[in-house]
Structures are given as C-alpha cells and as structure tokens.
Design a protein around this nucleic acid. Sequence first.
RNA 1: GGAGAGAUGGCUGAGCUGGUCUAAGGCGCACGACUGGAAAUCGUGUAACGUAGAAAUACGUUCUGGGGUUCGAAUCCCCAUCUCUCCGCCA
Length: 428
Amino acid sequence: MLEIKLVRENPELVKANIKKKFQDAKLPLVDEVIRLDAEHRAAVGEADTLRAERNRLSKSIGALMGQGKKAEAEEMKQTVNRQAERLKALEALEATQEEQIKKIMMTLPNIIDDSVPIGKDDSENVEVQRFGEPVVPDFEIPYHTEIMESLHGLDLDSARRVAGNGFYYLMGDIARLHSAVISYARDFMIDRGFTYCVPPFMIRASVVTGVMSFAEMDAMMYKIEGEDLYLIGTSEHSMIGKFIDQILEEKELPQTLTSYSPCFRKEKGAHGVEERGVYRIHQFEKQEMIVVCKPQDSAMWFDKLWKNTVDLFRSMDIPVRTLECCSGDLADLKVKSVDVEAWSPRQKKYFEVGSCSNLGDAQARRLKIRVSGEDGTKYLAHTLNNTVVAPPRMLIAFLENNLQADGSVRIPKTLQPYMGGKTEMRPE
RNA sequence: GGAGAGAUGGCUGAGCUGGUCUAAGGCGCACGACUGGAAAUCGUGUAACGUAGAAAUACGUUCUGGGGUUCGAAUCCCCAUCUCUCCGCCA
C-alpha cells in the first residue's frame, strides 16, 4: 500500500520497483491509477464547488425562513434542486473512482529496501549468516513423528478422528516441552525489554484486510460462521490491529510487544512429503514480537528483531541460519524480510522456523496508525513483526538436534527449570 | 439470550422540539504577560483528512460506522458495532 502522491509524483520509481519484483503484469496499473487519480481530483473539485454553493444557499434559506419570506425561500429551494442532479452524479462518480483507485493501490507492491537481493522466487533467496555448527551425527535421525511417538508424546490417530488431518495430540513430556518452550520464549523476550501481551484470538474483517492481502486472507483465515470474526493466523494480526485508527505520541514510541497466541491456518495448497506430522498444521502456538516505531528507526529494529530469534534458538543449542527473502518472493506489503531457519540433521538442510518482516508504513497506512511528532506534525508509523518461536514445528528442530544415540533427548540447561528440573527425556 | 440507557475534538461535557454548530463551558497542552525564578493569575491559540496554492489561506468531508429523509442533519428514521445498568446463563 503506497501513498497515491508517491505514485503520482514518482511513477518511474514505482514501476522500477514492480520490475524488481518480476510483476510486470502490474506495470500498466501505474499509469491507469494516475489517470484515475487525475479524473477523481477533477470530480472532487467540481463537486466541492457545488457543495459549497449548496451550503451557501441552504444557509440563506434558513435566514429567509426566519424572516418569514416563504416565497423567496421556496424559489431558492428550486435553485438548489436544479444542481442536485449534477451533484448526485458527481458523488456517484467520486465513489466509483475511489473504489477503483483503492483496488489498484492495494495491489501495487510496497517499495522494497535497496538491500533486498533481486530474484524471481524462493529459489533465489540468499543465505546471510550461519549461527552454530550444523552437525550430522553418526547415527540415524528418525522422522520427528517417530521421535515423538517413541517418547509417547504424539497421538495423530486420535487427532484425525476428532478434528482431521492437520491436528495433533501432544502428550506427556512432549506436551510439557511444548509449554516449556513457549514459557521460556516469553521470559526471554520480557528480559529483553518487550511487554508481554495476550491478545484477542479472533478479529474483524476490517482488521484482517488491514494486515494482509486478500489472497493471503483467502488462503489462511478461518471465518466464524454467521459473525464478522476470523480466527487469527498469528497474533501479529491482533497486535498490529491494536493500534488501528490511533495517533500515538512520538514519546510513546517505540512500542515493543511480545504476544502469545494459538494460530489457525487453512494452509490451502499441496502438502509435500516432508510436511507430514506436525510440520504444516491447522493449529499451532506462537510467541511473537512486534514493533511500532518511527520510520527512521525501522531498519535498526529489523536487525534487532531477527537477532532475538537467533539468540533464542542458540540458547537451546539449535544451529540456525538467516535467509534473506529476494525481491520476487517478498510479499507485496513488505519492505524487507528474513527467515530464520533451523538445522535439520535428518534432512541435512535448514528449514523455516520464523520470519522477520519490516512492513514500512504499508500496514500503518491501511490501518491509519499515525504518530504525532514533537512539533505537531503527523506521520505514519512503521511496523515490524517477527516470530520468537512457534511450536510444535519448532519441536522438530529441537528433537532432531538434541537427540542422543540411545534415543533419549537432552534438555538444554535453559529449559530445565520449565521442565521441572528434568535433564533428559527417555523412551521406556 | 431478555429489558433499558448511551457513544460528541487529547480528556470531561453541553447541544439532540433540524437552520449564525463556524460544536458552549471546563481540564490538559502550547505561546505570551506578570515574576529574581516559580506557583497562582491573566491573555492568545489549540481535531483529523481531502482538493487548490510557494505560502497565507480558501473550499469540502468528518459529532462510533453505514444507509435514508430534507434546500439543509450532531439533532429525525433504519441497520451495524461498541459501552453501561438490571435479569438469565456460565469458567
């Protein structure tokens, strides 16, 4: 979501950005929206003149009525009525133009950061940095469902009967580990100065459309039947929505929040062979972090945010890397984004466990999140979000990296207090 | 779920028998005066968004949101949302 002024004044910049994202089909939209905008402003100008005239005449009708000059008032009413038709037509035109402009503006991608690598799809994403040694042990690592089952920690059969594919029962120590990871991650972020928050798990359509594109919404969100409510796909939705229509004082920034929520996703689309078990599921839990800040600070916060996730995983002895999203793979609302990926010693590759995004002012423009500066000027805030940790997918990385040759799973020191002091989980 | 009352600029709060509402009054905030400095006091100014303009400014839109009646809506009508009170239900 760009500002129409930017498109009007810098069409070449907007077009170059579209090309960088390999969305050439959208190029004609730029000229089209500029034309619509010019027509719209002309219509507004004419309509405003008519409205001014109507207001002036209406006022004098009031005055005439007060003086008891009914005949003159009636005559004046007729004058206003003669203009009413043209005004009505103009107002209808204004409405359709606004709708058309908004529709196009919603599809134009945000201007990406200069540092974003150019590439057409996820195959061209770029590894930035590795943290920790990606170890491949000399014994075989089983599929994560087998590790969990060996510890009596997973019951997919029952889940299928009760809710279907994409759901799970976590049992015993695995369920406890799940809660431990969430609690540990919560405290980890609180220690870094973030404010803990439990948000609504359902949100209105108006908030959904503010935080994501229609295509994403259709592919992800579960709707509550008969109500204007959707189950959240991530607490980012309700956390950014918290600031909808707000004008924040500059001194209240930055807002740094960490939130817990269950997440619900339809996950429309094919499920690959490596996505069995608890990798791609309709329901999971997540500790999230979001930041609302001044525009000049968002790049700095972006770096801080993804580092938090890296540090968290490293504190549980899980090797990770950061993978920068290339231009073509970057969602339209985003300025820049990196995925944090955890090492899978079984697959001998990294897989996504978190995603850190700088949205610039795109969400803020849609949701009207503004800042009132010291000198009274108003501007849009920048918004960012990042995963702290999202089990049960994260447990896959945890189990594979902490599995011992004898089938037991080591519990790192940092997690032990959250596991009642246990140092390992052992199959019976 | 049932019944009733409400929603007005940053906050509080009047207006709600339709027409100087260009939204009173108060609080807060900003600037100025007074002061050695401050408090108190006094004065002035204090919403957002859009269009035009270099700017001053002008015009338009907005009184929870959407629709309607009217020459004209904060005010009347309809729908939605939210809040409060009472009843019911419930962890």
